[in-house]
Each structure stands twice: as C-alpha cells, then as structure tokens.
Design a binder for these strands. Structure first.
Lengths: 151, 151
DNA sequence: CTAATTTCTCAAGTTAACTTGAGATCAAGG
DNA sequence: CCTTGATCTCAAGTTAACTTGAGAAATTAG
C-alpha cells in the first residue's frame, strides 16, 4: 500500500466531491501531505475530520466555525481519542443549545395558535424588539425571549 | 392615517432592511399595493408575514420553501386566525422533526465519545453510506440512522 | 413652497460554499 | 511504453439571499 489515501479515496469514503475536499483545504480544514509527484496524500483520520465537517454543516455551522472547532485538534500528530472526545463534547453542547432554541420557538407558536392572532401586538412571532441577532448580512431582529409569559 | 404601512414602517416594525423587503417581493413573499405615486403600501398582516419569514429562516428554511408555506394564505383577503393556525401547526411539525434529528445526532455523538474512535469503521460520524441526502449543491452523504444500535 | 427624506427602478456587487472548465502532469494497467 | 484515468492549478461560473449605488420622482417637515 502506498502512503496515505488519495483525494479520490477520501471522496469515495466520505461522499464529498473531490473539488469540495480541495476547497476545504483552502479553508484550513484539511492539510494533506504531497507525494513525489505533487499529489495529495491524506491520513485515515481525515475521513473523520471530514465526517465531522459534514455533521457540523448539517447543524448550520459555517466552515469558519468548523475550522475553529477543528483547530483544537493537533496539527502534526494524528488526533487521539481524547482529542476527539473534547471536540465531540463541545459539539454536543451546541446541539443542546439549538434544541433549546427550537423548543422555545415551538412554545411561542403554541401561544400564537391559541392567541387569536388578529391582535398583532400579542403574537409571539411579532414583537421583535428584543433579542436582536445577526444571522447573515444586514441587521436582523429575531423573536426574542420575553413578552410571552402573559398568556 | 394614510392607507397602509410604508416600506419604511414595515422595516422599522420587523427589523428587516428596506432592501430585503423589496427583495422578498420579487420572490412572492409579500405583494403590497401601490398608492397614487407608485409607493408600496403594506397591510398590517404583512408584519406577521415577515415575522414568519424570519422565524422560518432561523430554522433553516429557504425563501422558496417559505413562499410555499405562505402560499397557503389567501392572496386577496387578510388572513384569518384559522389561516395562520394551519400554517403554525405545519411549522411546529417541522420544528419537531428538526429537534428529533438533532437528538439523533446527539445520541450518535454519545456513542462516538464512548467508542474509542480510533477504529474508524465504528464511529457514528463515519459510515456515511446510508441516508444519503443533498443539502446544497453536489452529492452529500449524511450520517444515516443505522449502524448505531451495536455499542 | 422649498428642502430634506423616503421611495422608486434597475443594474451590479457581496459572501458562502462549492462546481466547472482548461490545459498540463502523474499514476497505473496491459 | 503507451494509453487511460486521476490529479494538479487557476480562473471563472453558480445559487441564495441580500446590499449598494445611481438617478429620478414622491412625500413630508418647516
């Protein structure tokens, strides 16, 4: 067996396009070695790295955020079990946060369904004034976390 | 009071940029009337419409999907309570689905944390072969829902 | 009525995350 | 050795969701 996986191997194992894997490299997400001919050679652990990227994207993280997460892995040696465990735990925390946000939203909709919804000043989907947050370019107000207790 | 809200009013009430509201119009999300001078005039119910758009985007829906949801509202008359209730219920179902997906992922990470993670063939983040789904351009494999029962 | 806002339209620019294409080189099978 | 297929680099195109800019007309404040 030659040293490491080719980019095609990695693409086959992860389901990613070869072009995507190269693109990720320009964003510091993978850093393969090169063989004598200048072709990329990947470590087996890069499969896991890319799997992590795909999972994170599913959750809505940007490549930049993902790269930050991954930067906590050792750049030189293959990541150990503990290295990955640390990352996975932080990842789980993010998932939990997102679940909570969705549940809050769901509760607001409960209120909206019951409230008649024609008096716009009381709908949970309205009243954006609190909890402003930017999600993408430009200013955006989100549904905040007050004005909901009073049924 | 003049007839309806100006685009600036709507922007102030929703937190959206004026340009964004105009943009949404080109995507069939709002359809304001025009006054004598050709300026847009919005109904109060458009505030809710746009709030719904922002909430949906938070959940990862595209404008196309949102427009589809909104197309179930009557185009001519102001939406009634029941109209909005129907939409809100469908919306809640989507939230529930997403929460489930996140919880599944979290479970997989539980397994990943415990499994040693150095035998790549058993990690929940690996083994993409099932549950393929496209999320953005190009083929993508996601973490499916099998190969997880056996600890 | 005049000046300052706001709005109008339309075209073009922006960011993220990739893909596609061109032209050249490397690697592997027979 | 030679051909086919995989890779390489670099530039440019793509989609979503908007923003920015220009020039003109409508509104509003004083």
């Amino acid at each position: 067996m030659s040293q490491g996986l080719t980019i095609g191997d990695l693409a086959a194992r992860t389901g990613l396009a070869v072009s995507a894997i190269r693109f990720y490299e320009t964003h510091g997400i993978v850093a393969p070695l090169r063989n004598a001919g200048g072709h990329r050679r990947y470590a087996r652990s890069d499969i896991r790295r890319l799997s992590f990227v795909m999972a994170s994207q599913e959750l809505g993280f940007s490549l930049g955020e993902i790269a930050t997460h991954l930067s906590h892995l050792p750049p030189d040696r293959a990541p150990s079990r503990d290295d990955w465990t640390r990352i996975a735990i932080g990842f789980r925390a993010d998932i939990a946060r997102r679940i909570e946000a969705l549940q809050l939203l769901s509760h607001k909709l409960d209120g909206c369904i019951g409230c008649g919804c024609l008096s716009l000043d009381r709908c949970a989907l309205y009243n954006p004034a609190d909890g402003a947050a930017a999600y993408g370019p430009g200013p955006r107000y989100l549904m905040g976390d007050s004005q909901i207790a009073d049924g």
